[in-house]
């Protein structure tokens, strides 16, 4: 493993982390403000990718597909809130887990019924094909850099919205004490819907951006969902800042671990055993990091004020 390869891994890790952040941000806001566990947040990411694939195929343009897919993700998110989630806010976490699990079963099967089980491909938009010379002998795909930039811009926007606007102030107030906010005359139900729709759109956005580089297939949101949970647990539930730091951490650990672990193991074991144990350890690494962090700080790195 040389410097170039390590740099590529680090960039891939950051880009993976940014996607994770977009999913985790919605999840942590929804949880922080509404005390609501939404397992179906991962399928929102999958829907974003499928909508992008669908609209890109119809319109022939990624740039037209992007806003249409975002709108679609928003509409589906609000529809789910209206049909299912709204009735679960005053139920216990167990009921929320189960009902949103039902939503996952339905939607995963739904995209299978509509689009088939074969993975869909979305072409990389013309404007962003090719690569950028990062250093001597290292050409990094432009599209991946664009993901990184778009993700960072979204994170900045999110920070601005949450920390510097009135709506953001209400969201933060809701996260620390929702009944009090309601007593002060704020329509908490509408606030919930706002946060929910926004979170659904963020996850959808991550799906749209991931569509050209990952294969679009049923169940693609499930693994992301679990990593997003790891992110918000490490970051501290309800904290957007924590989600950002933790998402980058998880992205880097996951990606670099996969690249590095087999090499590290080769110091102790023969090559074939090293490859196996390395791969096994790499896929467990994120969870080991999480367990270690929680063993020291059970509320996560940046617990939201409660």
């Amino acid at each position: 493993m040389n410097t170039t390869l390590l740099l590529v891994q680090a960039l891939n890790g950051l880009q993976f982390g940014i996607l994770l952040f977009l999913i985790a941000a919605g999840l942590t806001l929804v949880f922080g403000v509404m005390d609501f566990i939404n397992l179906a947040h991962g399928v929102q990411y999958m829907l974003g990718a499928y909508l992008a694939a669908y609209f890109a195929a119809i319109t022939g343009s990624f740039w037209l597909a992007l806003p249409l897919a975002l709108l679609g993700a928003l509409v589906i998110g609000l529809l789910l809130e209206f049909l299912v989630f709204r009735h679960l806010y005053d139920r216990d976490h167990l009921s929320q887990v189960l009902a949103t699990f039902g939503v996952i079963l339905f939607l995963n099967q739904g995209v299978k019924a509509v689009f088939g089980t074969a993975p869909l491909q979305v072409p990389v938009p013309d404007l962003l094909t090719g690569g950028v010379r990062v250093m001597d002998g290292l050409l990094y795909p432009t599209y991946r850099i664009a993901i990184l930039a778009a993700g960072l811009a979204t994170a900045g926007l999110l920070w601005f919205l949450v920390e510097r606007t009135k709506a953001g102030m209400l969201v933060r107030a809701g996260a620390s004490n929702a009944p009090m906010l309601s007593a002060l005359g704020v329509d908490v139900k509408r606030l919930f819907m706002l946060v929910f729709g926004f979170g659904a759109m963020l996850a959808g956005f991550a799906g749209v951006m991931a569509a050209p580089i990952l294969s679009v297939e049923p169940g693609m949101g499930d693994n992301f969902l679990i990593l997003a949970f790891v992110v918000i647990v490490i970051g501290g539930i309800g904290s957007v800042r924590g989600a950002f730091v933790a998402a980058l951490l998880v992205g880097l650990v996951e990606t670099i671990g996969r690249g590095l672990m087999p090499d590290v193991m080769r110091l102790f074991l023969d090559p074939s055993a090293a490859r196996q144990t390395g791969a096994a350890l790499a896929s467990m690494l994120v969870y080991i990091v999480m367990a270690a962090i929680l063993a020291v700080r059970p509320a996560g790195l940046f617990p939201a004020g409660r």
Partner: peptide, 23 residues
């Protein structure tokens, strides 16, 4: 509470990935 749900989920995933890599 929620942390427990998520941690057990994470440990479950850990076991899942461990068995997936048992070539």
């Amino acid at each position: 509470g929620v942390h427990f749900i998520m941690i057990t989920l994470a440990f479950g995933q850990m076991a899942f990935f461990a068995t997936s890599s048992l070539a």
